[in-house]
Design a protein around this nucleic acid. Structure first.
Lengths: 142, 142
DNA sequence: CAGCATCCCGCTCGATACTG
DNA sequence: CAGTATCGAGCGGGATGCTG
């Protein structure tokens, strides 16, 4: 597997960490930001990370109960992805009935920090967005 | 339209801005974080915001060229959403041929700041994630 | 309890054609 | 140039049933 990190076509000046990232799948170039966005963009992943941020260790069933509305299938898939990305650990206790515990890694907690930042921004700015939406509805009515 | 901001079921203690947010669509409760995640999670929205963060003002065609791989349809939809949310402004110049300019609002630039944070985190931690993935591949091979 | 396998519906999105 | 309108394939993800 061969990857190139950074901007495929470095046109213009870019002072900060913003890359012009293109789709990782349709091109043979690779960009980190797209990848993280892909993870953040998965609603269930975010839910799972936040749950584990608040509880340290959780079992499969506990996560299922906590993440309201998630299907068993999606929880399985989500946890598998997060484990593959090294964001959480999966510990199996070989006993009957089986017991599996999930826990954020250091990397996972690091990402959690970012999500908290994001949620704080959301809380602070949501009223702006809601107002903008309502104004738009009014505008389209007349 | 009636919305309630915050946690539908305030179980346990939550010290910071993390809400246990449920799906805005399947429930009649509303939570700001889910809404912002929905926006962030839209890959094309992120591309558009970053493009406009680097260029101040852009026309439709310029955005289409800059955001590699986006279809004309999705660009239209994306820009409409972002405008409705008050993240960018759309200025029409009544002339032939028509000319439309898009520009981030203050709110949009504020969100851009968050995205930059995120991209910096991604750049710093991406190698961790990549390594985790490769190790997982090796593990599944044997 | 903690999953995996399968089926299948619905929505997203790309492709295409047309307009002011 | 900057869109709108329509259609159809693809697949994300829910429901269900079965295992160790």
């Amino acid at each position: 597997m061969k990857v190139t990190i950074g901007n495929p076509k470095p046109e213009g000046t870019q002072e900060n960490a913003i890359h012009h990232f293109s789709d990782n799948r349709t091109t043979n170039h690779y960009c980190p930001v797209t990848d993280v966005i892909d993870r953040i963009s998965d609603k269930w992943s975010v839910h799972a990370i936040i749950m584990l941020g608040r509880n340290e260790k959780l079992r499969f069933g506990e996560l299922k109960k906590g993440i309201q509305g998630i299907s068993q299938r999606m929880l399985t898939v989500t946890l598998k992805h997060l484990e593959q990305d090294g964001l959480l650990t999966r510990t199996v206790f070989p006993q009957i009935p089986p017991k599996v515990e999930y826990q954020l890694t250091e990397l996972g907690r690091s990402l959690l920090g970012q999500l908290i930042q994001l949620s704080e921004w959301a809380s602070e700015n949501m009223n702006h967005i809601l107002r903008a939406r309502e104004e738009h509805i009014l505008k389209s009515d007349r």
